[in-house]
């Protein structure tokens, strides 16, 4: 075959494959918005569910998700950012560092349901927290750690070495250099990682099944040791466990969840592209 023609055909096939990936993403979002938007109103967002979750709103699930994600981030940020600082600023090329990197890759690869088992075994039972916000948040925090470490590491790596030298040459200590020069320069990149972590934590279901999620609990949590309803689990419940439910209600639940997750992701993408331009 004529090489020019072969190239044309090949490129068209590659383009089609790409379209095959991108179009369904758009379709999923459009379907959810079109079918879910009509059911969204203040009552849906701010009322308790009623009639076996077939009516009313999803307020406790929204609040539960916010509490859970906030607690998760609170646990994950310091450990994740410090861990990235260790890898970029302190670690030498040795066996320990190699093991740390392998461990991070594996944390990223552990199935989310296995996190659920781990959270159940360690936090719920062994430490006696019971199914609670704190147990769920700690489980999710460990799960999103690799995301925060990897993005923070990338951000720290991109700070020019010369900044560090200039600071050290002025008599600043290593930590002062990190604190006053490196971290401020890396901040947008680190924030990107944190937002991606939020988005992941808000959308996961399997790790929270046995650690925090309540099937039906029409009240708000009072302490970190309370169980809560959570959006992704609520979507699972209304789409598979409750017969004869109005489809708009289910779609609207999906819309709220996807909205939170995608807006967070969009924010991260925008932040990152602005930040990359600056460097």
């Amino acid at each position: 075959m004529n090489p020019k023609l072969a190239q044309k055909i090949a490129f068209i096939i590659l383009l089609l494959a790409t379209i095959l990936v991108i179009v369904p993403v758009g379709m999923i979002v459009v379907i959810i918005v079109v079918k879910g938007a009509p059911a969204i109103n203040w009552e849906f967002l701010l009322a308790m569910p009623s009639k076996g979750m077939r009516a009313g709103g999803i307020f406790p699930a929204i609040v539960g998700t916010i509490y859970l994600v906030a607690a998760t981030i609170l646990f994950a940020i310091p450990v994740g950012v410090f861990s990235a600082i260790y890898l970029v600023e302190y670690a030498r090329e040795n066996l320990l560092t190699r093991m740390v990197k392998l461990a991070i890759i594996n944390l990223a690869g552990v199935p989310s349901i296995v996190y659920g088992l781990f959270g159940l075994g360690l936090f719920v039972i062994f430490l006696g927290f019971g199914p609670s916000i704190i147990a769920g948040a700690l489980t999710l925090a460990i799960m999103i750690l690799p995301i925060i470490i990897t993005t923070s590491k990338e951000a720290l790596d991109s700070v020019p070495r010369s900044y560090r030298e200039a600071s050290l040459a002025l008599g600043a200590s290593k930590w002062q250099t990190i604190r006053h020069v490196v971290l401020p320069s890396a901040l947008p990149g680190i924030l990107t990682g944190i937002i991606l972590g939020i988005s992941r934590a808000a959308g996961e279901t399997a790790p929270i099944l046995f650690t925090v999620a309540a099937f039906y609990l029409p009240r708000l949590p009072r302490t970190m040791f309370d169980q809560v309803m959570v959006l992704p689990y609520h979507l699972f419940v209304v789409s598979t466990q409750i017969p004869n439910i109005k489809t708009e209600y289910t779609y609207a639940t999906a819309l709220v969840l996807v909205g939170i997750v995608l807006i967070a992701n969009l924010a991260a993408i925008i932040l990152r592209s602005k930040y990359r331009k600056k460097i």
Partner: peptide
Amino acid sequence: MLAAIPSVV
């Protein structure tokens, strides 16, 4: 975006 869509969705 596709990666971000929760598995339950």
